[in-house]
Design a protein around this nucleic acid. Structure first.
Length: 895
RNA sequence: GGGCGAAUAGCUCAGCUGGUUCAGAGCGCCUGCCUUACACGCAGGAUGUCGGGGGUUCGAAUCCCUCUUCGCCCACCA
């Protein structure tokens, strides 16, 4: 703790040690710090899938959560961030199947039990790696409460929920068209079938009437399904087909007789106005079939090959081969009327991208409408708050049109459906049970458990309470439900967020959280989502290694804005993360400097203690930095509260780099070196403002702030910035005059620097400066910081008279104060005249437009008087500045 | 087909309730500096028809309309 700090910040050297120390101290648990005090504040982590290691999207999501949880923890709340991982049914099963495939094996070679064991093996590895990654980026989650969605506890909650919903009539088994992935070989929910616009075709097929008296043309985008047609439907009012209703058609290729039926669902204006009806392969057709008692012929196998239900020559063809074959045969028979390009939406499996096949099958469903109603009400009455607000419209729109949720999956990895079927044909009872059944509760006969597992989201929609011990009434549950903020990405509003709200209301009677902050998606510079398959991903761990966790976090937070995506360049990590690294290094060195000049605990800056710094001991610069610090506390606190993390980051960055480092530290140096009068005051001010800055920044850059904060002299060994009190606005900060007066000092220094740069004055060479103009107030302000001005502008002398000399550089400050830097031979008269001339021109333009504005009666009479007054002030100032410069030019003898 | 968002410096973006942070920040670029915290730095500098067009207003990057271009979400016209 006392070893000298390296001149270059090396995150790798401190991060892991600090993290270990934090967890050893139990700082992330709401049980161990500030026991009993403060209101709880709870965030549920969106549990990452155990499929693979984390990507930048997780980095962003978890950084945001960590910023919020650390902020509230410092504000004294009992902050609990519940971490977990998701078993991710389809995704994980796919990953392990792919690994098996590399050994030439399928899951069927292993059998269910061995396969599931193999998956467990895999998730134990990746699950652990994921948690390590979260720790590497500094996440302050309470690891003692880590869950996995297949844990015993969460499994019990899943089963309890299934059984309760069944008992309430909200879970049912049904025979419907569902979205089927022929690659994953499972049913999907509507949300899991991603609609995507594709350029396809629409084929017009001619079906002859059975009596040979003509034909009807139908249009289809999936011609292969005609093998399963059991009717053609027309609109009952459609004049063209009225006479044909009830007649038989001879289905080509199959030679089956199918009826023409009349159904209101048919749009007579689309295509030919006649629709082929395939009840087993299209949801709309299914409904038509049901209304007309049509048979359903399933012509596809689970792999989307043509089944035995079709004529021999099509059997076992893949659906696309079958499509070509069907079209070829129809064309040969002269029954293919025409083909058109057709853009339409096609469902794709969200896990493997395969085109889903609508398929008739037996599945378990949840009736959602009764749960959607209260979830909608909670939004409408303002219980739920979305940030950004417009996301609430997505949420409510989805709930309004909600459809039942298909929850059964034909997978092996997941929560087995707690349903047992009696194998006694005379009983055949279906039993839904909280406990595993060995025999049928009805007849005592043998039972067989349903083979399917539940949708992975059926466990994650419960985590706000299942992670806290539900269905038991645990202390955690009463303390930490409901939670407060959900931090998520807009792409899982429907999958997860909306469903959590429904389950929370249904089972707990309260929404699981009030605020839903939806951040953007991480994309590359071409605005493509980062993904492994595109190869445009950025590995957060690589960034941590190269730039440090704090740099990663800073860059993510600073680059995000409410409602917009975060763009990063995978080909140029430097462009994305160097700002964060540079800032960390800047902070490190500022800290190094400050700490090396704090041999002992500084005097308190405020308070009732004997040795507290008195106001009259403060210099103008002291008062200025205190005022700036205070303004930053207000701005940052407000920004964190409103989830405007980039604004918080920006305000703190500016305060630390520009105000504190560039100006305050630079000017305070003489007072810190050695034992000079006022040194103790300077140390008190610099220590206090730096301490505040570290605390403000800690939620965003936890490691470096902790490392520096702990090194303050007199700090207790166990003290951690992560539970240090959040800074509060300082009522003693007297803002207006110190901001104005020190602002004048800054302007003067800058003006002299410009003149020096303009005339190439050697950096080491001191010059004189003469200030005149604007009266005693300005002189007094500048006089207060004379040493600062001399030092920062590298002056040998600063005088406040009218100068007898005139050859030199001139400038005028915003309040009309003018500055003159005699430069003797170094000055190029023509150049100076030109400089001043263009400045005068600029001011003249400003003055003219301002006079025009103020001369406008409409403006003067209609604009608010304070605005008019402000504008008048501006005009006066500009005129003054202009006059000063004109006079200077005359003195110089400019033409 | 419906809805939403975005377009500002070479790049990534701020700019919230029209007028003092109004044309900004960071990165990149140019010039000069290894000034005893920091070259991952310091000081100075250049760069913009605020996507196009129209309108409202005393006043528009900001509000309205329209067009263009990107992006996202939703949708059972086969």
């Amino acid at each position: 703790m006392t070893e000298p700090l390296a001149p270059q910040y090396n995150p790798a050297a401190i991060e892991s040690d600090l993290y270990r120390w934090w967890t050893e101290q139990g700082l992330f648990s709401p049980d161990s710090h500030a026991p009993g005090s403060g209101e709880p504040y709870v965030i549920q982590m969106p549990p990452p899938n155990v499929t693979a290691v984390l990507h930048m999207g997780h980095g962003l999501n978890n950084t945001v959560q960590d910023v919020l949880i650390r902020f509230e923890r410092m504000r004294g709340r009992r902050a609990l961030w519940v971490p977990g991982t998701d078993h991710a049914g389809i995704a994980t099963q796919n990953v392990v199947e792919r690994l098996l495939a590399e050994q030439g094996l399928t899951r069927f070679d292993l059998g269910r039990e061995a396969f599931v064991e193999r998956v467990w093996q895999h998730v134990r590895e990746t699950g652990a790696a994921i948690l390590e990654q979260l720790k590497a980026i500094g996440c302050s989650a309470d690891w003692s409460r880590t869950y996995f969605t297949l844990d015993e506890g969460l499994s019990r909650a899943v089963r309890e929920v299934f059984v309760r919903l069944y008992e309430q009539g909200l879970v049912y088994r049904g025979h419907y068209i569902i979205n089927w992935c022929p690659r994953c070989l499972t049913a999907l929910s509507n949300e899991e079938a991603e609609k995507e616009e594709v350029d396809g075709r629409i084929w017009h097929l001619r079906y002859p009437l059975a009596d040979g008296s003509g034909s009807v043309t139908v249009a289809t985008t999936r011609p292969e399904t005609m093998l399963g047609d059991t009717a053609v439907a027309v609109h009952p009012e459609d004049e063209r087909y009225r006479g044909m209703i009830g007649q038989q058609l001879r289905l080509p290729l199959v030679e089956r007789l199918i009826p023409i039926v009349a159904d209101e669902a048919v749009d007579p204006t689309f295509g030919s106005g006649a629709v082929k009806v395939t009840p087993a392969h299209d949801p709309a057709d299914f409904e038509i079939g049901r209304r007309h008692g049509l048979p359903s012929i399933d012509i596809m196998t689970p792999e989307a090959r043509i089944s035995l239900a079709a004529p021999d020559r099509f059997q076992s063809l893949d659906r696309y081969e079958a499509r070509r074959r069907v079209l070829a045969e129809l064309e040969a028979a002269g029954l293919l009327d025409r083909v058109e390009d057709h853009r339409h939406a096609v469902g794709h499996c969200y896990r493997c991208g395969t085109v889903v096949e609508p398929r008739l099958s037996d599945q378990w469903f949840v009736r959602m409408e009764p749960m959607a109603r209260p979830a909608l009400a909670a939004y409408r009455d303002g219980t739920l708050r979305f940030v950004p607000e417009r996301r609430g419209e997505d949420y409510s729109g989805w709930l309004e049109g909600i459809r039942d949720w298909c929850i059964s999956r034909q997978l092996w990895w997941g929560h087995r459906i707690p349903v047992w079927y009696c194998e006694e044909p005379s009983c055949a009872r279906t039993s839904v049970s909280r406990t595993d059944l060995e025999v049928c509760p009805g007849c005592g006969g043998a039972v067989r458990q349903d083979d399917d597992v539940l949708d992975t989201w059926f466990s994650s929609w419960l985590v706000p309470f299942s992670s806290l011990g539900w269905p038991d009434r645990t202390r955690d549950l009463t303390s930490f439900y409901p939670g407060h903020t959900m931090v998520s990405s807009p792409d899982i509003i429907f999958f997860w967020v909306a469903r959590m709200i429904m389950s929370g209301l249904h089972f707990m009677g309260e929404v699981p959280y009030r605020d839903i902050y939806l951040h953007g998606v991480v994309r590359d510079t071409q605005h493509r989502k980062m993904s492994k398959s595109l190869g445009n991903g950025i590995d957060p761990l690589e960034v941590v290694e190269r730039y440090g966790a704090d740099a990663l976090r800073y860059s993510l937070v600073a680059g995000m804005s409410v409602g917009t995506d975060v763009i990063l360049d995978p080909d140029d990590l430097e462009a994305s993360f160097s700002a964060g690294r540079n800032f960390a290094n800047k902070l490190w060195n500022a800290g190094r400097f400050i700490l090396s000049n704090l041999p002992a605990p500084p005097r308190p800056l405020a308070g009732r203690q004997q040795d507290a710094v008195r106001r009259d001991e403060l210099t103008l610069a002291d008062r200025w930095i205190i005022a700036r610090c205070d303004a930053t506390v207000r701005a940052a606190t407000d920004a964190y509260e409103r989830f405007r993390l980039n604004e918080a980051a920006g305000a703190i960055y500016h305060f630390i780099w520009s105000d504190l480092a560039d100006w305050y530290i630079e000017q305070v140096k003489p007072r810190l070196y050695g034992d000079v009068p006022g040194g103790d005051v300077a140390r008190a001010v610099v220590a206090q403002t730096f301490d505040v800055a570290l605390r403000l920044l800690h939620p965003i850059m936890p490691f470096i702030t902790e490392a520096l904060w702990r090194r303050f002299p007199g700090r207790a060994e166990t003290a951690s910035i992560s539970i240090a009190p959040w800074p509060t606005p300082d009522p003693r900060a007297e803002a207006p005059d110190s901001l104005r007066d020190f602002g004048l000092v800054q302007e003067l220094v800058s003006a002299i620097r410009v003149i020096r740069a303009e005339y190439g004055v050697q950096p080491g060479q001191a010059v004189r400066a003469v200030v005149s103009g604007d009266g005693p107030a300005s002189v007094a302000a500048l006089e207060q910081e004379r040493p600062t001005i001399l030092r920062l502008a590298k002056l040998s002398e600063l005088s406040f008279d009218e100068s007898p000399e005139r050859v030199g550089g001139h400038a005028v400050l915003s309040n009309g104060t003018s500055v003159f830097v005699p430069l003797g031979d170094a000055i190029d008269l023509g150049r100076e005249c030109g400089r001043l001339g263009s400045e005068v021109d600029r001011l003249i333009r400003l003055v003219e437009s301002q006079e025009k504005k103020l001369g406008n009666q409409q403006f003067v009479s209609r604009a608010p008087s304070d605005v008019v007054e402000r504008e008048r002030q501006k005009l006066t100032t500009w005129k003054e500045q202009c006059e000063v410069l004109v006079k200077k030019r005359e003195l110089l003898g400019c033409s």
